[in-house]
């Protein structure tokens, strides 16, 4: 049986205390909430913390509250299942709850948290392997080695951003509250949480903790998340696209497009939606009649540079990114409030 290497586990009394422990122990410590990402990686020697700082028991991380301005604040320790099973969140933020519902499998979503999914480790066929396999391969720069196996000339790690919920959160204009030692708090857009580097993919400080996700009022946004993967469940995204759309009257006023699993960070490619602005999303446009969606999708997917370090052929993954952009626009349009309804 695969087992974890020995490590200690602390149960801090509060988020502040957790941040202080993190600051105190530095690189030897890691946070664990649901553990669904960390535990398998520890079993395979990809992560080797000596100390785990538990967050799962902290009630302050498990609250879902409506904010004064009419949005929602979701504690980082809320499970993916709780989010995807919430009718009021699903009504307001379909892209986000759909993304949460498409993470892994039901039993895992009962434990995996929304904070954990935002911070989920980047993935790579050369990295997500046992110690013995990586030893046979000669290791890579993300762990125990010094080169990138999929792109040996690359100066940085090319592991793939694999969070399903991050692109949805970014498209919806969400932010995260980060907690630091000494009661320090700061709020940053989710997009600012990431760096385009598979090894150092989180931009937050080493002693910071994602405390909550703040979603702005849903307003008249319609949104959708489309995930490309091999099977109907379990699998990580081979490409993922979140779209949020807003209309003024019948015309598109704003459209955000965010991609995941096509590089080392989620990519906000909203400028690609330019041709949609001021246009009416008629049934013909949504059916692809005048190539408008294709034009947007081609532009949006330009940033996608898949490599041979995930499932299926990388050319196909690029092609599917375009298709997923089109699908996500169509799906987001389908859940827009009726024109003339409440703004």
């Amino acid at each position: 049986m695969l087992r974890l290497p020995p490590c200690s586990y602390l149960r801090p009394g509060s988020v502040d205390e957790a941040a202080e422990l993190l600051a105190e122990h530095g690189e030897t410590a890691m946070l664990v909430a649901g553990g669904t990402d960390l535990v398998p990686k520890m079993k395979r020697g990809q992560m080797e913390p000596e100390l785990l700082i538990g967050l799962g028991h902290l009630a302050e991380l498990r609250a879902v509250t409506e904010t004064e301005e009419g949005g929602f604040e979701i504690g980082a320790g809320v499970t993916l299942a709780a989010v995807s099973g919430s009718p009021r969140l699903a009504a307001a933020y379909p892209a986000y709850t759909r993304a949460a519902a498409l993470v892994s499998s039901p039993a895992l979503r009962n434990v995996g948290t929304i904070g954990g999914n935002l911070c989920v480790d980047t993935r790579c066929n050369y990295y997500d392997m046992s110690f013995e396999w990586r030893q046979a391969c000669g290791f890579c720069m993300k762990k125990d080695g010094d080169i990138c196996r999929v792109a040996p000339a690359s100066k940085r790690c090319r592991a793939i951003a694999s969070s399903d919920t991050a692109p949805a959160a970014i498209a919806l204009g969400a932010s995260v509250v980060l907690a630091g030692p000494g009661g320090r708090r700061r709020e940053v857009p989710v997009d600012d949480l990431y760096r385009d580097d598979g090894q150092y993919f989180l931009a937050m400080a080493a002693d910071e903790i994602v405390q909550s996700l703040r979603l702005p009022p849903a307003g008249s946004w319609g949104s959708a998340y489309v995930k490309v993967r091999r099977r109907g469940t379990i699998d990580f995204p081979l490409a993922g696209v979140a779209v949020a759309l807003r209309r003024s009257g019948l015309l598109v006023e704003d459209c955000r497009i965010v991609l995941t699993a096509v590089g080392s960070r989620p990519f906000d490619v909203s400028p690609a939606a330019g041709p949609l602005l001021g246009r009416e999303l008629t049934a013909e446009v949504l059916a692809g009649a005048d190539d408008l969606l294709a034009e947007v999708a081609n532009e949006a997917a330009k940033v996608a540079k898949p490599l041979d370090n995930a499932d299926l052929h990388y050319v196909w993954r690029k092609q599917m990114t375009r298709r997923a952009v089109e699908q996500a626009i169509v799906e987001a349009a389908s859940c827009l409030p009726a024109p003339g309804g409440p703004a």
Binding site: N125, D128, M129, W133, A136, G232, T233, D311
Partner: peptide, 16 residues
């Protein structure tokens, strides 16, 4: 080296 020595990477049909 084996490309998919795990139940995640070796694809088998699920319920869905």
């Amino acid at each position: 080296l084996l490309r998919q020595p795990s139940m995640l990477d070796y694809k088998s049909l699920t319920f869905l």
